[in-house]
Design a protein around this nucleic acid. Structure first.
Lengths: 124, 124
DNA sequence: TTCTTATTTAAGCAAACACTTAAATACGTA
DNA sequence: TACGTATTTAAGTGTTTGCTTAAATAAGAA
């Protein structure tokens, strides 16, 4: 695994050490953020999140119809996002509605705005 | 693949159709954005991007030292990000420096700010 | 030209991922 | 209770990902 023999002639040792400190300091932050973003970095899940953002709440069945995908496949995507706290659920009789958690709707808002912008462009 | 038999008793047909329209309208935007985010949603690549953001530019060798990873592994991450236009390169003798493209540094700035915030918390 | 340094690329492999099918769970109604 | 609707979960499978090792490319120095 290790091959730290690559010490450039003019490598800036201070810079390297500063960076190493940053990485170890923020190690958990990197993992946590990357973890969340890896979920959003899938077009099916991004669609689901955006649709829920627009419609406030949707159930598996709705999403299955909208995306033309197997209910089971959608359910498994929803579960992942619920497990990592991007989504929360509320039951209403047999139907389970998914909505965004406040924590993540803030984080994801910039992306939804980008998509909203494209929507306007596409319509005109 | 299809199993669109799930038509809820009280499904909102108008809502479903509105959502279908949105999805087909923004189809490419979803793919493009998800594609970009899937790259950032990896802790090694997120670290690389943040370090380059902080230090303005870094080479494979630096990153290999900082992250304690194989040069080849880092190189392959960098290539992916260059291919999808998150990073650009400039050669200086034998050394190739990677830096953020303006297009993506804007998009990624919110995340870097989150990480900066955590850094302050971790330091105090 | 040959050697060293810096980096990329190709091939291989184990782990993670996304989807399918089928079975299980949960709630409501007859 | 038994049945229908809404949803989740488990198991299986093909594809993608991230890393390893080894070979290839590129530029400068001897």
């Amino acid at each position: 695994m290790e091959n730290n023999s690559c010490i450039r002639q003019q490598a800036d040792i201070k810079q390297i050490n500063r960076c190493k400190d940053t990485v170890s300091e923020l190690s958990e932050s990197f993992d946590h953020l990357a973890n969340g973003l890896s979920l959003v970095g899938n077009s099916v899940r991004l669609k689901i999140l955006y649709l829920i953002f627009e419609e406030k709440r949707l159930c598996v069945c709705d999403l299955s119809d909208i995306l033309g995908m197997n209910i089971s496949a959608i359910s498994q995507h929803l579960r992942k996002m619920k497990d990592r706290n991007l989504l929360k659920t509320e039951r209403e009789a047999q139907t389970i509605f998914y909505s965004l958690t406040t924590e993540y709707s803030t984080l994801l808002n910039p992306f939804f705005e980008i998509l909203d912008g494209n929507k306007i462009l596409a319509t005109t």
